[in-house]
Structure formats: C-alpha cells, structure tokens
C-alpha cells in the first residue's frame, strides 16, 4: 500500500470569469505522504486545496480522493478529509469544547465516541484546562491549535492545511510543524499542505509541487529539486561588494552566464550562474565597472533558489503583500484566559 495514490488529480482547472487561477494541473499524492504545494500567493495553491476539499467546484478536470470523485461523490469525500484553513474556523463565543462538539456533531459520529474524542483532542493540544473557556479569549497559538484539532474530529485520512503557519511566531510555527509530523507518523494521515514559506516546505514535505501562475512548474522531493540547480553546470555565488551600485547590478544582470541576480541588501548580491567561465565573467564584470569584492561564497542551493531558477522571480515578491486575515478580530487583544 505504501505507493498507492490516495489523491489523483487530472487536468484540474478553475477559472474565475476570464482569470485562470488553476491551469490544467495533474498530480498524484501517495498514501501517507506529506505533500507540499509551494508558491507565491495568487499562484493558485489555495484554489487547488478548495477544489480538493469540495469547497469549490472545478471548471474542468477531475480529482478523486480515496477513489471518490470530488464532485460526484462530494459527501463521501467530506467524510475522508479534514481541512485547516488559513482563516480560523471556530466561533469566538463558544467554548473550546462546544466548538469541537458542534463541528463533530455535523459528522454523524455517535455521541459517546464524540465525547471521548473531543476530550482526547483537547488533551492532545494541551487545551484541556481551558476547555470551558470561550475561544475568543485564547492566544493566537492556542487558537491555531484549536483550528488544527477541529479538522481531526472525523479522523480524516487526508488532512489539508492551507498556510498553517501564516502569521504565527517562530515558536508556534515549530509547534505546528511538529504536530503535523506527529499526526502523519502516528495516524498515517496523508497531509497536503500549501505554503509560501520555504522553511515549511523544506522541513516538512516528502514531495513538493512548485506552483506558479496556476501551473505546476516542478514536482519532486526537496533534495531532487535542489539538485536541479546544484548540478555540474549551475552554481550560486554570494558576493559582498561595499561600493555596490545599481548600475553594477544591471551590468551583472546583462551577463550571459547569469540566470538570476537578487540583491539581498545594499552591499550583498546573490547570483545564479551557469557555465565553466561563470566565475571569471562575474569577477571581470565587477572589476571593469569599478566594484570591490570584499567576500565571495559558493552557496548550497535553497528551495528559494530553486524557485528563482525555475520561475525567474522570487517567492517573496508577491508573498509580502498578504495580510494575515485570521488575526483581525481577536488577534492581539489582551488575553483573559480563565
């Protein structure tokens, strides 16, 4: 069973009016794997997830989850899946326990089983002592944990996570990542996760699909993706140039051997180059244009570099524009945890 596919996506397409958000994509997700959809916001990741979780209807194409068609057998699909949305799915005026009870009761779980499961889940995320407090009084970290366990009420075989660490502090992000890994390992749940955070994708996912403009531009393990650019021909050079100027950056961009040039700050550059003569050409170009090199490094490629290499632009370009909506209401208000 290890290699059996639990999700099969064929030519999935979603258009909104004239805009194509998801453009004819196909992929399989194997049972028990953690599968990442990586890409900038607006790339179509969330739309893919919404279609797979039956919340949106595909314009064209199909997908099956556990053999059930996401359109024709949506009710069956819903019993198999859980979704952790970027928005927190919970009612602030209900207590932690009431929230879980409410959502659980929509799944036709027998009452005694549900009672036990709610207690177990609250224990799992260490919220037992606050089970009778309204979730509106919870901290962001507590709310995010609630948001995750809510999706586990029906013991889903497939768990969809949409930007699960968005807007979280580094420590909460670590906690959530640990939790996802634990779920995957101990319950054998297949996890599909969307993120624009390279770290999430790199640390968590068995395989990563890089999405840009509604299309899958690459799909492989993190290590294999990195090999794409650290092969014999391609290298990343990090340069510190104290008297870096925009003219110089433009000259470097114009170089034939440079695939991409990104400026990290006022004095440092990252250049993705190819070819045997690459180092020489770069150094020559800098010296001819009066630049001084204070340090030069040959970098190990990161997923970010992979993305840059494939798409020609950075993930961050568009990612930074997103405002974390989830914390708008109760996010930073003073806590009254009872």
């Amino acid at each position: 069973m290890a290699n059996a596919s639990i999700i099969e996506v064929k030519n999935l397409t979603k258009t909104f009016n004239k805009f194509t958000a998801v453009d004819d994509i196909s992929f399989d997700v194997k049972k028990g794997e953690i599968f990442g959809l990586l890409g900038p916001n607006g790339a179509g990741k969330s739309t893919i997830l919404r279609m797979l979780s039956t919340l949106a209807r595909p314009t064209k194409g199909t997908a099956t989850i556990g053999g059930y068609d996401i359109v024709k057998a949506d009710t069956e699909v819903r019993t198999l899946i859980g979704i952790v949305s970027e928005k927190m799915i919970m009612y602030n005026r209900l207590t932690a326990k009431e929230n879980l009870w409410f959502f659980g009761s929509l799944f036709n779980i027998p009452k005694d089983v549900l009672t036990k499961r709610v207690d177990e889940l609250l224990e799992l995320v260490q919220l037992t002592q606050w089970k009778n407090a309204q979730v509106g009084t919870f901290s962001t970290g507590m709310r995010q944990r609630m948001n995750v366990v809510r999706a586990l009420l029906n013991m889903p075989q497939v768990l969809f996570l949409d930007e699960p660490t968005l807007g979280l502090d580094p420590q909460s992000s670590v906690e959530i990542r640990e939790f996802i890994r634990k779920l995957n390992r101990e319950n054998g749940a297949t996890v599909v996760i969307t993120t624009h955070m390279m770290v999430d994708a790199d640390l968590l996912c068995d395989r990563i699909a890089i999405i840009d403009h509604g299309k899958i531009v690459a799909l492989d393990t993190s290590a294999n993706l990195k090999k794409m650019i650290s092969g014999a021909d391609t290298t990343i050079i990090k340069l510190d140039i104290p008297n870096l100027s925009s003219v110089l950056v433009e000259k470097l961009r114009a170089l034939k051997c440079a695939d991409a040039v990104t400026q990290e700050n006022s004095t440092s550059l990252k250049i993705l180059v190819h070819g045997d003569e690459a180092f020489d050409s770069v150094i020559d170009a800098i010296r001819v244009n009066g630049g001084k090199i204070s340090s030069m490094e040959n970098l190990q490629p990161s997923l970010e570099d992979v993305f840059l290499h494939i798409t020609g632009h950075q993930v961050r370009d568009s990612a930074d524009q997103k405002i974390p909506m989830a914390h708008r209401h109760f996010g930073e208000a003073p806590r009254r945890v009872r």
Binding site: T75, E76, I81, I83, S85, E86, I89, M90, L106, F107
Partner: peptide, 13 residues
C-alpha cells in the same frame, strides 16, 4: 467572511 462557513461546508451534511 470569518471562514466558519467552510467548517460547515466540509462536513458531510
């Protein structure tokens, strides 16, 4: 708008 509707919509109801 808040997103809780999705929670009901993914339930098999």
């Amino acid at each position: 708008e808040v997103g809780t509707m999705d929670g009901m919509m993914v339930a098999p109801i």
